[in-house]
Design a protein around this nucleic acid. Structure first.
Lengths: 155, 155
DNA sequence: ATAATTAAAGTCAATATTAGTCAAAGAATT
DNA sequence: AATTCTTTGACTAATATTGACTTTAATTAT
């Protein structure tokens, strides 16, 4: 069950720190050195695993004394969570992003585990695929927004 | 049992592991190499022998460190209602029929009120509309069947 | 002060590493 | 003979890794 790729390991490393801290401030090259990867891979990990959909905000500074800070975001209430998730969904929604969103809903106690799986079933690729991956992503976005909107007043 | 084909052997190999474990995580090319078949034959085995009807769910990831994970799930025994509903849905499903189905699920205590509204949101006309009412009914059928299949097991 | 240098992080496209799809060919069964 | 199941491989898609080049900020030199 070991995470096989290095990006997953880096993700796990950072999330372990974030389990005990509200934020983590790193020097990109240090983390890159720790895992023996090129520095830009840290950007890759952040861009794919620490997005706002995931519940993180990232800020950084270049130049001497530069850093990257990852912060767990605290949305004030459920409506804020839903609104920001709806905002983050544009016209299209990839499978990966949809999974992140559902995970965030669960982490924020907005849906139960059963509801997680019902939603994932509703946007399952095999269900909504129409032989056109662009349309699939559009359909996924539509369904997800519809569900999120429903959750805004169905509590 | 001497005249098994290779797909049967691969199936048996994986099911032997699953006899002792809840799940098995493989690298497609490794298993293909083990049995000296092309990698895509692993997909064939999975698609024909590890379906949800058989009580398995499969999830995978591509790219570096990619994998295929097969998980055993516990199918609920008392799911005649689900099976007959799935059978009854053909290729297409009207809005009206979908509402009847959701009502039936609720009446049989298979879903909660909240789940009713999530499902209705998922198949909402405005969400899945494609300017083509035939396609809309097809999409509605696909989504509903996907959800019903998900309700057939628990993890 | 201003310019030059240095020390970071960011971007983006190329390459690598997996798994998925699909249709054709071959084998087995009816 | 026809149908269904299995095997194969060419092509596609997703994800990860790498590195050259760019941008920004701080520090040092003029």
């Amino acid at each position: 069950m070991a995470d096989e790729n290095i990006s997953d390991l880096i993700e796990r490393y950072l999330k372990e720190i974030l389990a005990d801290n509200e934020q983590v401030k790193i020097r990109r090259s240090e983390i890159a050195g720790l895992f023996d990867v090129v520095p830009s891979q840290i950007n890759y990990v952040i861009n794919t695993r620490f997005t706002i959909q995931n519940g993180y905000i990232v800020e950084s500074k270049r130049g001497g004394g530069g850093y990257i800070r990852i912060e767990k975001v605290h949305l004030l209430d459920d409506i804020d969570v839903l609104n920001s998730l709806i905002d983050a969904i544009g016209n299209k929604l990839s499978k990966r992003d949809s999974e992140t969103i559902v995970q965030t809903l669960y982490n924020n106690d907005l849906i139960s585990r059963r509801e997680v799986s019902i939603i994932l079933a509703a946007i399952d690729k095999d269900a909504i695929d129409l032989n056109n991956s662009d349309l699939t992503d559009i359909m996924r976005a539509n369904i997800m927004v519809s569900i999120l909107n429903r959750l805004r007043y169905e509590r």
